[in-house]
Amino acid sequence: MTAPIEVDIEGRRVRLTNLDKVLYPSGFTKAEVVDYYARIAPIAVPHVAGRCITFRRFPDGTDADGFFEKQCAQHRPDWMQTALGPGDRRGGIHYCRIEETAAMVWAANLAAIELHAPMALANDLDTPRALVFDFDPGPDTGVSECCQVALGVAAVLDSVGLRAWCKTSGSKGMQMYVPLNTPGATHEGAANFALAVGQVMERQFAHDTSTPLGVTTVMAKDARPGKVFVDWSQNAHHKTTIAPYSL
């Protein structure tokens, strides 16, 4: 393993370790992961700033089981910002906040390959800033089928004056985000709206004889073969989705 080094990032000192460690089976190393996050930070940070960020860490590489980490590490630098967010029975948890390039590089050095963000800002956890449709392809379906459903959802949103933007989910599906720029939005209201739109898609695709594709809003996995699951539950207060530009 390479010796630890310290780098200066916009006046912050960040210690980097084990940079030659392979984190992807193809040979992609931690150094390359760190380099990616350093380069993408100016674009990615605005999407995660001000939020309670959950890390999914892969210290033994992505071909091993990773783990989710909500509590910001006690050994974090003194400049690393935190925020109190949803916790457990013992109370809230202090999450890391990614507010600058140095913070993103520090997280990358922990092998926090995936960054997951909630819909709400840390200073107003009860008010989602976006509504999300999570399209999960069941067996015998894929991202192209998710795109078909997303186009149907976009048409429904357009009819009520809403716009949405899509991104891949980090796994095999895709997600669609609707900005909520008006006061009064709630997590429950967002989830109910997403469910209602998903149910509209269920009916529309069930009556569309031009395609065998089905849609479901039912959680049970045995309801998903040949269908795209519209996961409306991602709008719950405690849920997060993988952040834009996250590996």
Rank of each mutant, 00 (worst) to 15 (best):
45 V>G: 01
78 D>C: 05
46 P>W: 10
48 V>E: 03
50 G>Q: 08
39 R>K: 15
55 F>N: 09
86 P>G: 08
38 A>I: 01
68 F>E: 09
55 F>M: 12
87 G>M: 02
38 A>V: 01
83 A>P: 14
41 A>Y: 14
70 K>V: 10
65 D>W: 02
70 K>Q: 15
41 A>R: 14
64 A>E: 00
71 Q>E: 08
60 D>R: 07
72 C>Q: 08
67 F>A: 14
75 H>N: 14
85 G>L: 00
51 R>Q: 12
50 G>L: 06
53 I>Y: 06
58 F>D: 01
67 F>R: 11
48 V>Q: 08
47 H>T: 12
53 I>P: 06
85 G>E: 10
56 R>C: 11
62 T>N: 05
39 R>T: 14
50 G>K: 03
65 D>E: 15
61 G>Y: 04
63 D>V: 04
71 Q>T: 00
58 F>I: 00
42 P>T: 11
64 A>G: 01
57 R>G: 02
61 G>S: 08
73 A>K: 03
64 A>K: 03
68 F>N: 10
67 F>E: 14
80 M>V: 04
55 F>S: 07
88 D>H: 07
54 T>Y: 07
63 D>H: 07
63 D>G: 11
75 H>C: 10
65 D>N: 09
85 G>A: 03
79 W>R: 02
83 A>T: 13
64 A>T: 01
46 P>Y: 09
72 C>F: 12
44 A>D: 02
54 T>C: 10
55 F>L: 15
59 P>W: 06
41 A>Q: 06
53 I>V: 15
67 F>V: 09
84 L>E: 15
69 E>K: 05
50 G>W: 12
80 M>W: 03
65 D>A: 13
48 V>W: 06
85 G>R: 04
77 P>E: 01
78 D>L: 09
60 D>N: 10
83 A>Q: 13
42 P>K: 05
72 C>D: 12
76 R>L: 04
88 D>K: 02
64 A>N: 00
52 C>A: 15
51 R>P: 07
62 T>I: 03
63 D>M: 07
45 V>R: 04
78 D>Q: 08
57 R>Q: 12
40 I>W: 09
69 E>P: 01
86 P>K: 05
78 D>V: 14
86 P>Y: 02
73 A>P: 08
81 Q>L: 11
49 A>T: 14
39 R>D: 14
